[in-house]
């Protein structure tokens, strides 16, 4: 019982630390822009029949979409495509994936999020695909 209590407290402290760290992270929208355009847009344009401009959705819609973490109508995780494993798998053909190969997953995800929120239909600077 005590050990379970201890485990819970450790987990709580860990999450607290995680959230504090997350709050402190200052997302780099320009890095997010490069990844979004070079990886997300490039693949969507080539394989998914068209790209998705940040300005096609509102900030709230992007927040909701990113939080849901569903890619390809829920077939897999959105975060997977920002993860190191995915970047490693395409880095030989994709310069952005190669350049950002070692960026922590959470950081790059926040970068991309910062770019699409900024470029949303009601964002600070609505952005097209290119």
């Amino acid at each position: 019982m005590k050990s379970r209590h201890l485990l819970h407290m450790i987990l709580t402290a860990g999450l607290l630390g995680l959230s504090l760290g997350a709050a402190a992270y200052d997302a780099d929208w320009k890095r997010g822009r490069i990844y979004y355009r070079s990886v997300c847009t490039a693949c969507h344009a080539a394989q998914a029949g068209g790209s998705i401009a940040p300005s096609t959705m509102t900030m709230a819609q992007w927040e909701s979409y990113l939080k849901a973490d569903k890619h390809a109508a829920g077939k897999d995780s959105l975060k997977k495509y920002v993860g190191k494993e995915y970047r490693a798998s395409i880095r030989t053909q994709n310069k952005a994936a190669d350049k950002f190969a070692d960026v922590p997953d959470a950081e790059l995800f926040e970068d991309v999020k910062a770019f699409v929120i900024k470029g949303a239909k009601d964002g600070d600077a609505p952005a097209s695909c290119s």
Binding site: A13, L15, G17, L20, G21, A24, Y25, V103, P104, A106
Partner: peptide, 21 residues
């Protein structure tokens, strides 16, 4: 120590991000 380590580890996971950025 464990609580502190967990908190630090949690923050470090993201804190490393902060430093890296």
């Amino acid at each position: 120590a464990a609580l502190l380590a967990a908190a630090v580890a949690g923050a470090a996971f993201q804190g490393g991000v902060v430093l890296a950025a």
